[in-house]
Amino acid sequence: MNTTEEVLDFVHHGHERYLPHLSIDCVIFGYHEHQLKILLIRHHQHDRWSLPGGYIGRHETLTEAANRILAEKTQLSNLFLEQFYVFGDSPTRMNRIETQQTHNTTYAKVGVTIGENHWLSERTLSIGYYALVDYLNVVVKPEYLVDEYCWWDASELPELEYDHNEIISKAFLTLRAQIYQQPVGYNLLPKKFTLPEIHALYESILDRQFDRRNFRKKLLALGMIRQLPEQRKIGPHRSPFLYEFDLEGYRRAVEDLSVRAF
């Protein structure tokens, strides 16, 4: 929604196109300068940040809606996308009055007051999805009711609106489990990467430290990555070799419980 007219149409007629009681919240992970990042937004006149999200179209599947919302936020398609939880029990999830007040703050920009019986004031359940994106390929499209976007370090997140800190915590638990089942790094790292980049990524996700020499030996022995003849010049006397994922090797490795020995 990028114009006043589009926002007003959503407020007055959105319930005809979207399911009023069900939304999607997206935890968008990126990786940059050895830091795991999460994309956050700040709505108009709100002090706290929140996760990007949106409503589910009446004729959309959940996956279709999640892909549409992510494409609108990042301008990317065919992303790694995983549904991980449904949120509705948290004491920090807003009640009807708080929902109404929050929407009135947001939609004051277009001169609209959300009444008690308005469809946006209804109790809403949220389906959590996490996405893995190439940080450098994300193009954030401005939105009329969003004042600011920002990539935050995953280890230094602020206190978020609603129950979004809880949603991110649950996404992290899922991501840590998936790192042994999916080529998570393949979706976060560039096609060709250095050993320090993948080493720092795994440490960031799993929140533990690995001996760099043993880490390299383990990944190569499992066939998860392969060393390339190319090198990246990053400074005087510093030209580390580049690596790439071997997806077939990765699939074989995750069938072997030894992969969990990281």
Score class of each variant (00 low, 15 high):
132 L>A: 02
10 F>V: 03
171 A>F: 04
31 Y>E: 00
219 L>Y: 02
43 H>W: 10
251 R>F: 09
203 E>N: 10
43 H>S: 15
5 E>N: 14
252 R>K: 14
47 D>N: 14
233 K>Q: 13
101 Q>G: 10
98 E>F: 12
88 G>C: 09
167 I>V: 15
78 N>D: 06
97 I>W: 08
129 Y>Q: 03
44 H>P: 00
181 Q>F: 12
126 S>W: 13
93 R>H: 13
99 T>G: 07
121 S>C: 02
44 H>E: 03
154 A>I: 10
202 Y>R: 07
181 Q>W: 06
258 S>D: 04
249 G>P: 01
29 F>D: 00
72 E>N: 13
45 Q>A: 11
205 I>D: 03
114 I>V: 10
220 L>N: 07
57 G>N: 08
144 Y>D: 01
195 L>A: 07
136 L>Y: 10
96 R>W: 09
90 S>R: 10
141 K>S: 09
70 L>H: 03
126 S>D: 09
29 F>V: 05
56 I>K: 05
243 Y>V: 02
169 S>F: 10
204 S>I: 00
244 E>I: 14
52 P>F: 05
154 A>N: 07
97 I>G: 05
166 E>Y: 13
106 T>F: 09
85 Y>H: 13
47 D>H: 13
226 R>K: 15
68 R>Q: 03
20 P>W: 10
243 Y>N: 01
191 K>N: 08
176 R>G: 09
112 V>F: 10
257 L>P: 11
31 Y>L: 06
169 S>Q: 12
104 N>R: 11
112 V>P: 01
67 N>H: 11
224 M>H: 02
90 S>P: 02
256 D>A: 06
262 F>Y: 03
248 E>D: 12
154 A>S: 13
144 Y>L: 07
178 Q>P: 04
120 L>H: 04
247 L>R: 11
222 L>F: 05
205 I>S: 00
156 E>G: 07
62 L>V: 07
215 F>Q: 05
259 V>I: 14
250 Y>M: 05
76 L>R: 09
145 L>M: 09
253 A>R: 08
198 I>L: 03
140 V>C: 12
77 S>A: 11
206 L>I: 01
133 V>R: 07
224 M>G: 00
123 R>F: 08
132 L>K: 04
83 Q>F: 11
248 E>I: 10
37 K>L: 04
19 L>F: 15
109 K>P: 01
39 L>S: 04
165 N>F: 08
219 L>S: 02
210 F>W: 08
225 I>R: 05
1 M>P: 02
204 S>Y: 07
100 Q>P: 05
25 D>I: 06
220 L>R: 15
87 F>K: 01
233 K>P: 03
246 D>R: 10
68 R>K: 06
254 V>F: 06
58 R>N: 04
230 E>Y: 08
232 R>A: 14
126 S>K: 15
63 T>L: 14
85 Y>T: 13
106 T>G: 00
237 H>C: 08
159 E>I: 15
41 I>L: 08
117 N>G: 05
77 S>F: 09
50 S>P: 03
67 N>V: 02
211 D>M: 12
50 S>N: 14
155 S>A: 13
179 I>L: 01
